Amino acid sequence: MVNIAIFVSGSGSNCENIIRYFSNRNDVNIKLVISNRADAYALVRAKNLNVESVVIPKSDFGKQTEVLNLLRNHEINFIVLAGFLLMIPDWLINAYPRRMINLHPALLPKFGGKGMYGHHVHEAVKAAGETETGMTVHWVSNVCDGGEIIEQFRTPLTPNDTPDTIADKEHVLEMEHFPQIIERVLQAEKLI
């Protein structure tokens, strides 16, 4: 059994999608949702789906012993970042080598790095006149959005697309593919 913690900062649509995808499995357990924001709607989604959630404010996220103890007490052996907007400290990356993945709403290495999250990404894609966008799932490293790419999915764009329609098109990819990518990673890493 693999116990997964999902780290979130916002509305949690991917979080809910992942919880639902694995809800009837006996080899994968979404055991914990962690948010750095107490007002993240993802916490409501987790509660509605009977998944425990914890808020660790940004000011407390650097407390290595407390965070690692929380994860160990819940027997977490894999972490999924699904719209988590804080940099992951090296000590946490080292504690979960090849056990932590991130979803980025663009085709890395383009439109990644500091400040490239949420709507900022889609605005940058539009400003660059890109003809396609997509999603990237990658291993978490100590370089923002710089970890080894696991999988990418693409969708075409038109000159008429706005940042909002770009976001909508990319989000469709996330809903369709992210849980399946997680499952494939767990299989490839022989965790299930």
Rank of each mutant, 00 (worst) to 15 (best):
I4Q: 09
I4E: 04
I4H: 07
F7R: 00
V8A: 02
S9M: 00
S9Y: 02
G10I: 09
G10D: 05
G10S: 13
S11V: 10
S11K: 11
G12I: 04
G12W: 03
S13I: 01
N14V: 00
N14E: 04
C15G: 01
C15D: 00
C15V: 04
C15L: 01
E16M: 10
E16P: 03
N17F: 01
I18G: 05
I18H: 07
I19Q: 00
R20I: 09
F22K: 12
F22N: 13
S23Y: 13
S23R: 15
N24Q: 10
N24A: 12
R25N: 12
R25H: 12
R25P: 04
N26L: 13
D27V: 02
V28P: 10
V28Y: 06
N29T: 14
N29D: 14
N29L: 14
I30T: 04
I30R: 05
I30M: 09
K31N: 15
K31L: 11
L32Y: 09
V33E: 10
V33T: 10
V33K: 09
I34K: 05
I34Q: 05
I34A: 06
S35E: 05
S35K: 01
N36G: 05
N36Y: 03
R37Q: 14
R37S: 11
R37Y: 07
D39K: 06
D39H: 10
D39G: 14
A40C: 03
A40F: 01
Y41G: 08
Y41E: 15
A42K: 03
A42G: 13
L43W: 03
V44A: 14
V44Y: 14
